[in-house]
């Protein structure tokens, strides 16, 4: 029983780490540009498949870095061509456009790589379990959590200590004033969008190594990521971090006692949080933004 609980809590944390990575990217984009990116899961898929395509040439480690970077570059192009037109418009437009984009990416992936699942090959030593009693914790699972932790820490440090990061945080509350202070806010938004897409691409590589790839894999992570943002409080990146881990663990723990309710529990959690704190756990009081 204890082991089952531990297994599911670990599972929940790992899933939560994915939610966090996805949700932080979504949050960055929502906060600065007001665009709700329903294509975020699509960029995850692109990251995963790029890693699959690059691994033969670059190996897993090369792909782990290059695939998210390439995904970010694709994101940059999409931002310049399409997303940019949404700024300052009714959110309905961003819903329509990014929703359509999500379908295009899914079908495009299917067209190029086929509908059947594909693996991202992970170095052998990462696939060993830690020990006989902790057989369910493979090195790869720890590795995923570590990569997510490093990525999240890097993001928070960049936002806190670099001028670009400080400008992004300033812009989430008052982009107009940022523009009068000599900052090219168009470029700031592009960069910020690319950073969010980088995180989606990274999620894709990591997820591919654990679960394999298929063109629809991004869609399942999208809704929980939105819930993580709402639970944590829209506008607060630390809130998003807490929200993602919370719903991941809640789903994991519920899986022990009421397996059939493990998907529903995040909605229940969201409802409870919103009843008690309509702005989410850290809404408005966020430390970073």
């Amino acid at each position: 029983m204890t082991q089952l609980l531990l297994f599911n809590v670990t599972n929940g944390l790992i899933i939560g780490a994915f939610y966090v990575l996805m949700a932080l990217g979504l949050s960055l984009i929502i906060n600065l540009s007001g665009v709700i990116n329903f294509a975020h899961g699509g960029f995850l898929v692109i990251g995963g498949y790029l890693a699959y395509a690059l691994t033969p040439a670059l190996g897993f480690w090369g792909a782990l870095l290059v695939a998210p970077l390439l995904t970010a570059v694709i994101g940059l192009v999409v931002e310049r061509l399409l997303i940019r037109r949404l700024y300052g418009r009714d959110p309905l437009y961003s819903l329509l456009l990014t929703f359509g984009l999500a379908f295009m990416i899914e079908d495009g992936t299917r067209f190029i790589w086929g509908a059947q699942g594909l693996p991202v090959t992970v170095p052998d030593f990462l696939n060993q379990p830690l020990s006989a009693s902790l057989f369910f914790i493979t090195g790869y699972r720890l590795f995923m959590v570590a990569v997510v932790a490093v990525a999240v820490a890097a993001l928070f440090l960049l936002l806190r200590y670099t001028r670009v990061g400080i400008r992004i945080r300033a812009g989430t509350l008052d982009l107009e004033t940022v523009s009068t202070l000599g900052v090219n806010v168009g470029r700031l938004r592009s960069l910020n969008f690319a950073a969010g897409i980088f995180l989606a691409g990274l999620s894709g590589v990591l997820a591919g190594g654990q679960l394999g790839l298929d063109p629809t894999m991004g869609a399942g992570l999208l809704m929980p990521s939105f819930i993580a943002i709402i639970v944590g409080g829209v506008g607060s990146l630390p809130g998003t971090l807490v929200g993602g881990l919370l719903i991941g663990v809640a789903a994991g723990v519920t899986a022990v006692f009421f397996p059939s309710a493990s998907d529903a529990v995040m909605y229940v959690l969201m409802a409870v949080v919103l009843l008690l704190r309509p702005r989410g756990l850290m809404g408005e009081e966020g430390l970073m933004t």
Binding site: R163, I166, R169, L181, T289
Partner: peptide, 12 residues
């Protein structure tokens, strides 16, 4: 949401 010092780092 920014500190005084951070406010002063926004101008370009």
């Amino acid at each position: 949401n920014l500190t005084v010092e951070e406010n002063l780092k926004v101008p370009n």
